[in-house]
Nucleic acid binder design. Structure first.
Lengths: 346, 346
DNA sequence: GCGCGCTTGTGAAATGTTTCAATTAGCCAG
DNA sequence: CTGGCTAATTGAAACATTTCACAAGCGCGC
C-alpha cells in the first residue's frame, strides 16, 4: 500500500527515509538495491516493505552523479517522419534493450542548430554514447563530442579520416544497381531525381547511376538530373510535374529516385497526370520503406538493411564505451534491388 | 582552444577546476553560469576563458540533483513506425522547444512490459512530466505515476474519471463521418475493417460507423465487420483477400478502415487482385497520414489534427507542471473527412 | 573618520546515491 | 569463555552543482 500525503506535494522518499523507516543504515538500503545477496533475508524483506510503504523511487541523478555516467544512449535522427530512420531506431533499441540501456531519441528535423542544441544537452547528461545521422558530417560539434571522450557513431553517413566509427550502406553501389536494372530492362533515357546537392547520399547515389551509364558505354552526362529541394513526397510530385512537362521524344522513360518518398510523390503525380507507370515512366525508389511495397503500384526500390544498420551501430557504440582496446571501424553494408511493379521489360 | 589530455580518459573538468584555474570561488563560477549579471565583467571574462581552456561542460546530473527535477519531458509513443505518432511528436517538440525543454522520446512498440520499464526509468529520471499514448489506458502504472506527483497527459486516448489530462480526437464522430460519406455516395453494403477489439479507437470508430447506418434507417448489424489482428499494412492486405473471397452479390461495395495503414494494405491487395478501387470497392482510411495522399490512388481519409494534438498535450502538461491552480482537462478535437480518389458517387 | 548602502565575491551546506573500510554480530572450535 | 572466522551491517566520504547568508571592498554623505 502506498501511503503518501494527498496532493503529491511531498518530497519523494530517499534512501535515508527508507533507512529510518526500516531501522537500518543507508548503506544497507543501497545494498538491497544493488547487491541484494549481501544482505540477510530478514533485513531485505524489512527494507523492501519500507520502500513499498514510502513509494520509494531511486533518484537517477544522484546515482549518475556518483557513477559518473548514465545508463542512457542517444540517437539523434535526421527526420522522425521518414520511416527509414524509425526503422534504424528500432534496430538500435533491439541492442540497447538487451544490455539494459535506455535509448533517448532526439529529432534534429534536419536543423543544424537544433542538432547542436541536442548534442550539448547530451554532453551535459553524460550519456554513454551518441548515435547520430548528422545534418552535416563535417560539423565540428561532432569532433568536439568525441574529443570529450563521448563515444560517437555516425549512422548512414561515411566519415573521412576514421575519427570515429560509422555504419553506412554503399550508396554508390545502390545508385548503380538502380540504373543497371533500368538499363537491363532496355531503358535509354534515364533521369535521376533528387537533391539538394549538399546531401552526401544524393551525390553518391547519382554518381552510382552515372557509373552504370558509363559501364554501358554511355556518357555520364546522359543522366537527366531533376533536382529537388528536399527528399519529400511533395518534392517528388513537383519533379513529376516537371518530367511530365518535357517533350515526349526527349522525356526520360525511367527515373532513379534518391529515396522512396520522392518516388512515391513522383508515382502519384504521374498517375494523376495520366502518365502510365511503368509503361511511360519506370520508377526506382531507394530505401524500400514499408510503404513502397504498399503503394497501389508497388514500387521497385533499393533495399537497405535498415534495422541491421541500427543494430550494428549500437554494437559499435557499446564496444567503444566498454572495450578499452576498441578500434574505430567503418562498416559498409551492401544494398539490394527489389524489383516490383514500377519497372518492367520494355 | 580546448586543451585536454590525449585519449580523453581524463575526468571532465568541474566547476571546482574552473574556479581554481580562474582564481575565484566555485560560487562565482556558478554565478557566471546562472546569473551572469551578478558578476563583474572582468571576472566573468576570466571565468569564461578558464571554461574554454578546460573544455568545461556542466554536469546535468548534479544540477538536477540540486534542483530536484529535470528540464526534460517525455513522450512514450505506441508505435514509432506509424507516421501518425511521429507527427504528434513533432507537435510536442514545437511546444517544448519554445520553453526550452528537451523531449525524450520512448517507443513502447505496443508492448505493455516495455512501456512499464520506460515509465520506471522516467520516474527515476524525475522528468517534468510524461506524455503517453498507452498500450492500455487502465494500466495502474499510469495512476502510480500521477500519484507520485509526476504530471501525466494521455494522448489520443480518452481517460475515465478525470484523473489526469487527456487529448484525443472524437473517434465516434470520425467513424460516423466516414460511413456517412459512403452512404451519401449511394453505398449500401459497407464493411468495417479493423481490430483487435481491445483497442479503444477501433471500437469507437466502428461504433460511429454503426451510428451512421442507424441514422440512415438501417440496422447497425448491417455493418460487415472484417476483424484484423493489428493496424498494419500486412493486415490490411489480409483483409483485402478476405473481402475478395466473398460472393460478388453479398460482397461489400465500400470499406471503412480503422486506420490508413490498413487502408493502404487493402487498397494494394484489391489492385493486385483486379478489384477496381473505387468502382468495385470504395475505401475510406483514417488518420490521413502523408502517405494517404501519396498513394497512387489517393486515399479518402478521416483527418485528425495530429500536430495540434501534440501541441495541446504538451501545453496541458506544462500547465500542470507549473501552474498550481491547474485543473485536469479532457480535450476532444473534431476530425474531418478528406475526400480523394478511393471514393466516388455510385 | 564613521556609518550606510551597494556591488561583488565567498564558502559552506545541501541534494541522494554508492562505495568501502571499519565494525559488529553470530557462531563454532578449542 | 575466549579467540578466530565469516557474514552482515554501518557510517562517512565522494560525486558536481546550486543557493544563501555573509563578508569584503568601495564610494559617499555627514
Amino acid at each position: 500500500m502506498v501511503l503518501m500525503a494527498a496532493g503529491g506535494a511531498t518530497r519523494p522518499a530517499s534512501v535515508k527515509d527508507v533507512a529510518a523507516a526500516a531501522g537500518v543504515s543507508v548503506g544497507t538500503v543501497s545494498n538491497v538495491l544493488n547487491r541484494p545477496e549481501r544482505v540477510s533475508g530478514r533485513t531485505r524483506a524489512k527494507v523492501q516493505q519500507a520502500m513499498r510503504e514510502l513509494g520509494f523511487v531511486r533518484n537517477e541523478s544522484a546515482r549518475q552523479l556518483r557513477a559518473g555516467q548514465s545508463r542512457v544512449l542517444a540517437y539523434v535522427m535526421l527526420d522522425a517522419t521518414n520511416p527509414f530512420f524509425t526503422d534504424v531506431a528500432q534496430g538500435i533499441e533491439d541492442v540497447a534493450e538487451a544490455v539494459d540501456l535506455a535509448v533517448f531519441i532526439c529529432n534534429s528535423d534536419q536543423r543544424a542548430e537544433r542538432e547542436r542544441s541536442y548534442l550539448t544537452r547530451l554532453k551535459e547528461q553524460r550519456v554513454q554514447g551518441v548515435l547520430i545521422t548528422p545534418v552535416d558530417p563535417q560539423d565540428p560539434a561532432l569532433d568536439d563530442l568525441a574529443l570529450h571522450g563521448t563515444p560517437v557513431v555516425i549512422v548512414d553517413r561515411t566519415v573521412a579520416g576514421g575519427r570515429c566509427c560509422s555504419v553506412a550502406v554503399d550508396d554508390v553501389l545502390g545508385g548503380r544497381l538502380a540504373a543497371d536494372h533500368l538499363l537491363d530492362l532496355g531503358h535509354e533515357r534515364i533521369a535521376f531525381v533528387g537533391g539538394p546537392e549538399r546531401i552526401g547520399q544524393v551525390r553518391d547515389r547519382r554518381e552510382g547511376a552515372g557509373h552504370a551509364l558509363v559501364a554501358a558505354g554511355r556518357s555520364r552526362e546522359d543522366l537527366v538530373v531533376v533536382e529537388t529541394e528536399a527528399l519529400t513526397v511533395a518534392e517528388g510530385r513537383g519533379a513529376g510535374a516537371r518530367i511530365a512537362g518535357m517533350a515526349r521524344r526527349t522525356r526520360p522513360t525511367a527515373a532513379v529516385c534518391a529515396n522512396d518518398l520522392l518516388a512515391l510523390g513522383l508515382l502519384q503525380e504521374c498517375v494523376s497526370l495520366g502518365i502510365s507507370v511503368p509503361d511511360d515512366l519506370a520508377i526506382v525508389g531507394y530505401d524500400d520503406i514499408d510503404f513502397a511495397a504498399a503503394a497501389a503500384v508497388p514500387l521497385t526500390s533499393v533495399r537497405q538493411p535498415r534495422r541491421q544498420l541500427g543494430r550494428t551501430a549500437a554494437e559499435l557504440l557499446i564496444d567503444e564505451a566498454t572495450n578499452p582496446y576498441h578500434r574505430h571501424q567503418q562498416v559498409l553494408f551492401t544494398p539490394e534491388l527489389v524489383a516490383r511493379a514500377t519497372t518492367r521489360q520494355r
